[in-house]
Design a protein around this nucleic acid. Sequence first.
DNA 1: CCCGGTTAAGTTGTGCACAATTGAATTGTG
DNA 2: CACAATTCAATTGTGCACAACTTAACCGGG
Lengths: 150, 150
Amino acid sequence: MGYVYVMTEAPRLDRQVCFALYSASRAATAVYRPVLEQLGLTYPQYLVMLVLWENEPRGVKELGGELGLDSGTLSPLLKRLEALGFVERRRSGEDERRVAIHLTPAGRDLSGPARAIPQRLADAAGLSLDELEQLRTTLGKLTAALHQSL
Amino acid sequence: MGYVYVMTEAPRLDRQVCFALYSASRAATAVYRPVLEQLGLTYPQYLVMLVLWENEPRGVKELGGELGLDSGTLSPLLKRLEALGFVERRRSGEDERRVAIHLTPAGRDLSGPARAIPQRLADAAGLSLDELEQLRTTLGKLTAALHQSL
DNA sequence: CCCGGTTAAGTTGTGCACAATTGAATTGTG
DNA sequence: CACAATTCAATTGTGCACAACTTAACCGGG
């Protein structure tokens, strides 16, 4: 029968995985920012466009499912994307609660210039493609496990 | 002399390291949120307290250096921490431009309950300590390289 | 000593995140 | 069919991030 280990030191910032994630995430979006600025998009707006380029139209709920965001975040964001002329929001005829998000021609055209963007991060990352691949996999496992635990 | 590789597919959300970082970071703070709520702190406020528990008092600039945040973020955050009674902001005597952030007794006492928090993430992570350690190292390299590239 | 340049902190404005609530449309069940 | 429970999107309110700007204090060369 052993003793429970009692922490005697305050947790240190530089040991925290959570802070490492927070810093890396902000650094990554900072690298994307000037590139996305050329397109007139913020990073979360770019994420929404990524989902729509794969398949559209999509409902707000559906977009939220892909990105892990709720209508409180997406509703105003989508309104801004509509004001920019990249998407159109149409009330569904069959279910008046739903709002279908459609790409406009301008929104579709944006996917061309956007193709070069991910390479930007790879170039700036200072990691090999293998390391990046493994990082993505580990982060995926981590995110899934964290959501599980809630 | 080869051809430059031309992307023909729109970038896919599930292939993006950047999105993996963004998701993992939000999932991690979501795990911390209910625990920190017990202490009355948000995650960024907790980060500031971590820095202060290591060494105080600190200037706003200094805190910003550790966390990668500017006065635009920190000034109101510190005002809220002061309103909560965890820190005190004192104008420096020698250099009237500087504001030294001191812990209050209540702020110091908070480090006790806070010690158990990091274990929370480790438990929820579904990764071995080795994997977590390696993840932290990789993220550190990545963040440094990304900052370098700006 | 003065004055231009620099530095520190704060302020303003925009755009996420996220909790909590609202209101309208739909669905399930008696 | 009636109507309570559910679902979807939007709204409200708080708190970051971050850019751009402001204000006040310091510093260094003339």
